[in-house]
Design a binder for these strands. Sequence first.
DNA 1: GCGGGTGTGGCAACCGGTTGACAGTGATGC
DNA 2: GCATCACTGTCAACCGGTTGCCACACCCGC
Lengths: 372, 372
Amino acid sequence: MTESRASRVSAIAADGSDLHAGSAVSAEVNSAASSGAKKGRTGKANSTIYDIAKVAGVNPSTVSRALSKPGRVSAKTQKLIEKAAAELNYQVNPFARALPTGRTNTIGLIVADITNPTFFDIIRGAQATGNVRDYTLVLAESAESGATELTVARRLMSTADGLILASPRMNDADIRSLFADKPVVVINREVEGVPCVIPDVRKGIGEAVRSIAANGHKKLAFVAGPAQSWMSARRWEGVQEACEWSGVEVIRLESTKPTVDGGRQVARDVLSSGASAVMTYNDLLAIGLMQELQAAGLDIPDQISIIGFDDIFGADFTTPPLTTVRSPLEACGKAAAARLLDLLHGNGELARTLQVETQLVLRGSSGRSPAR
Amino acid sequence: MTESRASRVSAIAADGSDLHAGSAVSAEVNSAASSGAKKGRTGKANSTIYDIAKVAGVNPSTVSRALSKPGRVSAKTQKLIEKAAAELNYQVNPFARALPTGRTNTIGLIVADITNPTFFDIIRGAQATGNVRDYTLVLAESAESGATELTVARRLMSTADGLILASPRMNDADIRSLFADKPVVVINREVEGVPCVIPDVRKGIGEAVRSIAANGHKKLAFVAGPAQSWMSARRWEGVQEACEWSGVEVIRLESTKPTVDGGRQVARDVLSSGASAVMTYNDLLAIGLMQELQAAGLDIPDQISIIGFDDIFGADFTTPPLTTVRSPLEACGKAAAARLLDLLHGNGELARTLQVETQLVLRGSSGRSPAR
DNA sequence: GCGGGTGTGGCAACCGGTTGACAGTGATGC
DNA sequence: GCATCACTGTCAACCGGTTGCCACACCCGC
């Protein structure tokens, strides 16, 4: 039987070791490409470049070149080999390719929590761009901890060609040390010396605060996110700045956690603050806050206006639908992947920060200040 | 236990050559584990079993065995090698391991759409279980098409040890042909001869319809999902059965697509149907429907009751929050992964269908029939 | 006709593990 | 005391591509 390739009998538990362990989810998207040969049964017996070489009557190395070094072989041989490859329904073995080259055609993406909808669109964007350029995106979760994040990043680094860090929790020095090793692109944070993609909060916030001021609100509360969040700090800065500019008084409230629950918990502080408009660090907080305020009998937006951040999936499920400052998350993911791939292919410009624009999405949860 | 460590980050690109193409997202979750050696600069220069062999003064093959064949080497040598491995901060190269064995410690999961929240919890569950057993989960997207699904499945099959198909669109024969090749587990559908994990719709539907009947509703509309959806058919059957049992009249309405938009579009039919309660194929339809009905001035649940299916993320963001029949999606993901791993390790029971229970989650969108 | 340049293909040595076959060792059995 | 056997470790041949180096052809110009 020709080489049968270790039928998946396997066995072997490969259970965990003392250190490490980890797992991964990886999403693959087809692009075009029919699988080649017709019928299903082409199944298992994958062909190799050796098979192709035999059919085409050339050396395996020539096949390898024909398939991966455009122009290295003559047009005639090229045709020959391509025909044979198609005939045998050949597909490269990614492992075999990765072994000698170290090139895996894989980029890593690390997020704090796979199920956080904020990251959803980032994943999708990065995935889409990777897809186009024939790269696999490997997604890793850091469980919201800077330490595990670094561990995970190092491990991922060993099998991926480059890394995208979305809202990383680890410190700048660690990120730079990763970057020293292989290409890295950071999303939602600015790190000196490392290419970054960040939403330009000012435009969206400016629109939001202007809208608030125009609606007659005099006092705005900002519900902050996690203390270590770079993005939360930027948003707070932006809000302060815009408020100063617009002559709106602003106060800052703290949340326990950036979730729906955290939003509920902050409702009391919001009420006692006397603000007639609220902006929250993210949409989940806004949704929780809105639920709690409505439960307390408040009418939104007639009695209090609420504006979130991000425009996540479900932000328009609420009643009234949530007004929010949209971060173009999918665009961030796309841009980050594109930069990373450029870096990998040497078109690497200097490490420069790329800003993508935010914008206010006006829906029902914000409106005129109650005539008090 | 000791050995193993299989860093299996992997992810595998399955990229390809001219044909093929595709990309993947893979999510990794750390577990515990400090990365081993202290400082950061251990960086790139990965050590190999050859390095360990030199340090420990044994043959590389002995190292290989010590690390992956428990009991094959003497305890003394084992200790020696482990010490050397730890010292060098060794991590197996997953590609090198995969090449000769064909074993990738990777399982594939195919969903129709990565951004569909229904699959979210399935992904998370499968991921969690895979993680525990030291397997990487590779997620592939089929773009809702049976044909691309098969293509993607075949490709994934070549790099994964087994496959999980969530709500597959391809036909039974194709699924069986995949199963003939490597272990496959299907979620949300029953395929003769292939292990399946499906929610037992009856319990949840029974509860829902009983609640509807108890609230005095006489006529229920069921908004169906895609024609080729196995799950939609089961739900319709379940609803019919339960309605017969409870003496509620039921009619079936068709939706254009199983999304929020589809829900909006079906609102007219719902209104003209004269039903006072509606169950929809999934939550997205329910949410869209609710929005449209509310926009038309209807009060929910006072004038019409709405019940969805799945209990996706955001189902409780609505006002009123959505009553829904929860499918334990995360449990499905976990169970499917567990079955697949059992299959891979030979503990494979016969192909049997596993049912997980559904339950009614009573929230605000359903209530008493309007006294008409 | 000869030296030099360019375009092509072959050879063989990797990449880093895995594994079947086998040899050396010591223990055990009779 | 010798054959048997279980236990350990080594040897070497893979897995399937990639790539540096070289050889051979062929074309060119002089």
